[in-house]
Amino acid sequence: MPRGIALLLLLLLPSWGAAQELLVPPEHHEWASFPEGSWKQIKQVTETFKDGQLVSSMTTTLTIRLKEVGHDFIVLEREAKSEVSGQVFEKPTREFRSGINGQTGTQRVRITPGGEQKLSILGKSYKCEVRQMEVLGEPTKVSGKVFYNPDTPPYILRREYAFTPSGADAPDKQMISEVIALDKPYPVLTEIKTVAFIVQKTTSSEETTETVEAQSTDVPGFVVGTWMTAYDAEGKLKSKTTVQLLNYEVASEVMLPAAAPNKSGIFRNKRQQRRVFEDGT
């Protein structure tokens, strides 16, 4: 996922707490649904334009690993290496902790039920639980609603958000993300997987971004491909970003017995380890 999108999502949803209502249960979360130790490697290419001409290009290889899954939070470890004009820059390994919903530790969000509503995707109707949300105590008011279907991956079928600066009468930024296709075959490394395609549009007075994502719930983080284009206020091309999945692994999850271990020391596998693809295959 492009960094701009990831940072945007960090603003959106509830802070953690003992009684915190989760936007989606952990088993439907893009990272928390996987065992600790699962990881993915992606290549992100960003091209910057001015007056229609390419002025720079940066390629970044990211390895993202799930370090910890708590009741209502996750910890991700990220390694990054960037290449600009033939020069390679190694970045230090960093860890990021966020709530299951992607929020930072100090944010508070009010979530209220919004009833049910049907969405149509390629002519088929899907009944969704609508969840309204509002970020509390922030300079910019963030409000919106999410359409959740527990039986249809990737589970959140539509998001609508508005960003209103303090004292303003109207939002200065709006974002709409919606699933436009489900259960589509798509090449993921050497396999064909079933994916959903999601279109997102973010508009502000300064910039408009249009993004298409392919998501598979078999892959940590769900996203297996991203294509994002940004335009300035005059509609001129500013940048293009593509994200390609290079490799991934779903770790084996092992549970110890709840009681004291017996002499045989039995362990139980809850999830099979999925294939890791070697470079060049």
Rank of each mutant, 00 (worst) to 15 (best):
T217A: 09
P220V: 10
M228I: 05
T208Q: 10
E206L: 09
I198Q: 10
T229Q: 08
S205Y: 13
G225W: 05
Y231T: 11
T202Y: 04
V223C: 09
L237I: 10
T209W: 05
K201V: 15
T190C: 10
T229M: 03
A196D: 12
T217G: 03
E234W: 01
A181C: 06
S204F: 07
T226R: 01
V188L: 01
D218Y: 00
L189S: 11
K201T: 15
F197Y: 14
I176G: 02
D183M: 04
D232H: 02
P220Y: 04
T190M: 10
T229K: 05
V212H: 02
E206H: 10
I192L: 12
T229A: 04
V223D: 06
Q200V: 11
M175I: 11
M175C: 10
S177A: 15
K236G: 12
V212S: 08
M228V: 04
Y186S: 10
T208Y: 06
G225Y: 09
V195Y: 01
E178H: 02
K184Y: 06
T217R: 01
K193L: 15
V219K: 00
T194R: 03
T226N: 10
G235T: 08
D183P: 03
K193C: 12
P187G: 10
G225K: 05
I180R: 05
E191Q: 11
V224I: 07
T194F: 00
L182H: 07
V195K: 00
A233V: 05
I192E: 14
E207I: 10
S204K: 06
S216L: 03
K238Q: 14
P187V: 12
S177K: 05
Q215L: 13
A214M: 02
A233Y: 03
S216V: 07
W227L: 09
I192T: 15
M175A: 11
K236A: 14
K238V: 14
D183F: 01
L182I: 07
S216A: 13
F222V: 06
Q200K: 09
S177T: 15
D218A: 09
F222P: 02
Y231A: 04
T190F: 06
T203S: 12
T211V: 13
E207F: 03
V219I: 14
P187R: 08
A181M: 06
W227M: 08
Y186C: 08
A230E: 08
K193V: 13
V179H: 01
P185A: 14
K238L: 15
S216K: 00
E210V: 14
S216W: 00
S216D: 09
G225R: 04
I176H: 04
M175F: 09
L189W: 03
S204M: 06
T208L: 04
E234C: 01
A181G: 11
V199G: 02
V179K: 00
V219P: 01
S216P: 07
V219S: 01
P185G: 13
V199K: 12
E210S: 09
L182C: 08
T203P: 02
I176R: 07
K201A: 12
A233Q: 08
V219E: 04
V199A: 08
V199H: 13
G235Q: 03
P187L: 09
V223Y: 00
F222Y: 10
T211Y: 04
Q200G: 13
D218H: 01
G221Q: 00
L182V: 07
F222C: 06
M228Q: 14
T226I: 12
